[in-house]
Amino acid sequence: MTTTAPQQKAKERSLGQSQFSVAWGQFRKNRLAKTGGVGLILIYLMALFAPFLAPDSLSSYSTTDITRFQPPTPVHFRDPRTGALTRPYVNKFSQQLNMDTFVNEYKATDEKCPIYFGVRGASYKILGFIPGNLHLYGTGNEQPGCNVFLIGGEALGRDLLTRTLYASQISLTIGVVAVLLSTFIGLFMGALAAFFGGITDTLIMRLVEVISAIPTLFLLILLRSVFPQNINPILVLYIILGILAFIGWGGLARVTRGQLLSVREQDFVSAARALGASDNRVMWRHMLPTMTTYVIVTVSLAIPVFILLESGLSFLGIGAVEPYVSWGSLLAQAQEGGLSSLNSRPWVLIPGFFIVFTVGCFQLLGDGLRDAFDPRKRQ
């Protein structure tokens, strides 16, 4: 069977492409993977610009007239008297003590609180160095009760949307950084075991087996309990990062060792040694780059696992602590009062939907990358 000139040219172009170019072409054909990638871009942009997207501080962290688990604030767009369209507004609310339960309850009044966009409020810094004080929306009203709680309030009467936006910074950062740390440790330890062998290989593999033999949840709780509960909240986040990275490198080290044991005997490694390349150069410049495609796929699939681990830690009360918050610690408030309380305040489950959405997007992206780098799935 003869090939036409266009087919021959297409074949020549494909032969001249790099592995990443071919993988990118395959990835672009996967709609689910692209959907997951776009979803992750949006969720990370949300975390990056959380201070701007959150309402002004007057409607987010007011300590006056605190109402536990305040329901979502209805936003009105029509004048109740004339029915004409008007500036969006919310009704001012007040608190009334229920003498039966001795709990403050939300009561709406007839007073209007207009909603403005581009409200000047509390100062913040994006990425830690870009100052700003502009918020997407808010009432700009200092009077107590003129708050905009689009998805309701949490246990201390603070805006749940604001808390969820700021929690995304903690959950997403811990997930990514912990995976990067564990990936670096796993690659380094696996490369040492494969390259040097002998006693080095034995010690590293026995350490991996010890870590794998201990149940993950028990190990997490044990490591966290070593540190006091009243330490600096920032230090707690670093401790969580270290714990997650420590328990996650073993599997990658095993795979790296197995892959590099075969690579170590390849001709290009022998040639590099014959030319006088040092052990470090042979390991980092010749052997480890063969793991690139595997690492890309593994990282994309491991990040959601670490996000779920961090959320589980926070849900159990051994993760992020005040004033910092994660999706898991917000979700822990849903268990107050048992399952019966969810009928009266279902909005407390909203942080859980952010976890599900993010993990789902990572899974779609990871599956797409795995298929793109798999030569058996290429046409």
Results as ranks from 00 to 15, higher is better:
16 G>E: 02
17 Q>C: 01
17 Q>K: 10
18 S>F: 03
18 S>C: 03
18 S>W: 04
19 Q>G: 04
19 Q>W: 06
19 Q>M: 06
19 Q>S: 04
19 Q>C: 01
20 F>K: 00
20 F>A: 00
21 S>H: 07
21 S>Y: 02
22 V>H: 10
23 A>V: 07
23 A>P: 00
24 W>H: 05
24 W>Q: 05
24 W>V: 07
25 G>N: 14
26 Q>E: 14
26 Q>T: 12
27 F>W: 05
27 F>Y: 06
27 F>L: 04
28 R>A: 01
28 R>G: 00
28 R>C: 01
28 R>L: 01
29 K>A: 03
29 K>W: 02
30 N>I: 06
30 N>A: 04
30 N>P: 00
30 N>K: 10
31 R>F: 03
31 R>E: 00
32 L>K: 09
32 L>G: 11
32 L>A: 15
33 A>S: 12
33 A>T: 11
33 A>I: 12
33 A>R: 11
34 K>H: 06
34 K>I: 15
34 K>V: 12
35 T>W: 12
35 T>R: 11
36 G>Q: 10
36 G>V: 05
36 G>A: 08
36 G>S: 05
36 G>M: 09
36 G>T: 04
37 G>F: 14
37 G>Y: 13
37 G>W: 12
37 G>T: 12
37 G>K: 09
38 V>R: 09
40 L>Y: 11
41 I>A: 09
41 I>V: 13
41 I>M: 15
41 I>L: 15
42 L>E: 02
43 I>S: 03
43 I>C: 05
44 Y>R: 02
44 Y>S: 08
44 Y>L: 13
44 Y>H: 05
46 M>V: 09
46 M>C: 06
47 A>C: 04
49 F>R: 14
49 F>G: 14
51 P>S: 13
51 P>V: 11
51 P>W: 02
52 F>I: 13
52 F>N: 15
53 L>A: 14
53 L>Q: 14
53 L>W: 06
54 A>C: 11
56 D>K: 03
57 S>N: 13
57 S>P: 05
58 L>E: 15
58 L>D: 15
58 L>F: 01
58 L>I: 08
59 S>Q: 08
59 S>G: 15
59 S>A: 14
59 S>E: 13
60 S>L: 11
60 S>G: 15
60 S>N: 13
60 S>R: 15
60 S>P: 04
